[in-house]
Design a protein around this nucleic acid. Structure first.
Lengths: 250, 250
DNA sequence: ATGAATTTGAGTGTTTATGATTGAATTAGA
DNA sequence: TCTAATTCAATCATAAACACTCAAATTCAT
């Protein structure tokens, strides 16, 4: 049995039962204890499950944890600086779309005094927005458990009800040739539609995302202003031929 | 049985009953007293429950505290019984709409094993649904800060994407003459649309709501089956001429 | 076919979870 | 208030699960 195959079996079992014992996996896969343990360790590192003594369980499906998930790194500080700058672009009375995701989440604390109307597909954003008394509209759609994002055709359709002054999107990669990309095609479609409906579209992504190319294309570089952290001059020049780049100093 | 599994069982039991004795847990889980005590200690440290002499109780739920504030604990117990019955109506594979509100919220713990697809306009419901791995769709719309309900024309439009086997609605009052009513016209419109899109509509309301008439009419009594607590016979006869009434004994 | 890289399973000492036992603390009844 | 019955926290030995290492088996590239 292939490694990836075996690991998929484990994930499928977890989908059904929520928790599983090591011995059960051994019986089903006919692999040794060592192998199963290795699989579990790997899958845990990939955030596909959570190991517990004696087996594994599905990941904590707590939506609250999602918005602050990767506070491990100091790269959260970068995100905050980017978000702060992005928020400074927003003007009194703007109607804006804020994409789901941890980067855009960092913008929310800076919206308080802005008198804006916000539309979002990020479930985790809602609480923070409401707390600040910001009129908030949520798109409809399927709830992606892992990220708390709303996606799918219903989300796209929901968006058509609105027109935005500005939209702020998170991405997994940007590249001069392949444009903005993200792994999930459904999320990419939502981001694209939002950009279409906005007078001006902004993508927020730190410099480590340069050259990264994920599965799904969102749009060309030219179709959205990039807000990023310091890049080497030659890359900056290359990108500047494609689109506007706002560089945030740290 | 896995530690995490056993602890989840304890939490689930608490969901249903609000309090539980150590001996009950021992009987159900077949674990030793020592182990159960350790579990309770851990769960208390994680703020998942509160230990009391002889067992444990739930501790006020953060997110829903606001909306539950004014209700007595006896009302909650009533709601739970009503909700449990309502959930028992649901069949494997059903596509259901669950209205926002505290009454319908009580249904969620009973959905786990049902293999259903849920559409809701209740933001507070989403977390509970996702935690149980239930495929969840959210309607779009304006976020009503006080209740976490989605309302407005966008919500109505979102709903049109779906057809339901059953829908479960909360109301503020029911009356033989004036039908089901609720204070907010926008919420009433959402409820009405949901009932229209369902093969079968259910309204959940305890007997204290009888004779109450709020500002906005949702629909006539005849258009939804009423799930309620014990009513005087004469009232029951009167209502039975209008619609089906399911009475839940306490 | 050959050697390098990867995957696997068994063996190791260590860590963790469990259940029984103890005496102290708490509750309930007289 | 005192006593009896529970319930509790702490300790301990045991058994299970753990991470780690190493050698055998497999896969891969050449």
């Amino acid at each position: 049995m292939l490694t990836s195959e075996r690991q998929q079996v484990i994930l499928n079992l977890l989908e059904e039962k929520d928790t599983i014992k090591i011995q059960e996996i051994i019986d089903i896969t006919n692999a040794s204890e060592s192998t199963v343990r290795r699989d579990l360790t790997e899958l845990e590192n990939e955030h596909k499950l959570k190991r517990v003594h004696g087996g594994a369980t599905v990941l904590g499906r707590k939506l609250h944890e999602l918005s602050v998930l990767d506070k491990t790194s100091k790269n959260i500080q970068e995100k905050k600086e980017l978000a702060k700058f992005a928020a400074s672009i927003i003007q009194e009375g703007d109607c804006i779309f804020i994409d789901a995701g941890t980067t855009t989440f960092q913008m929310l604390p800076y919206l308080k005094e802005k008198k804006v109307v916000v539309v979002t597909n990020g479930l985790t954003h809602v609480e923070a927005l409401i707390e600040q008394g910001i009129p908030t509209y949520l798109t409809g759609g399927y709830v992606k458990g892992k990220t708390g994002a709303l996606v799918g055709p219903q989300t796209i359709q929901s968006l058509q009800n609105y027109r935005f002054d500005k939209c702020f999107l998170g991405v997994n990669g940007f590249d001069g040739k392949f444009g903005y990309t993200t792994p999930d095609p459904e999320e990419a479609a939502v981001k694209y539609k939002a950009s279409e409906l906005s007078q001006k579209a902004y993508v927020i992504a730190d410099h480590t995302k340069y050259g990264e190319v994920s599965f799904s294309n969102i749009c060309a570089m030219s179709q959205a202003t990039l807000i990023t952290t310091s890049l080497p001059d030659e890359i900056l020049h290359e990108l500047n031929q494609e689109t506007t780049v706002e560089v945030v100093a740290l």
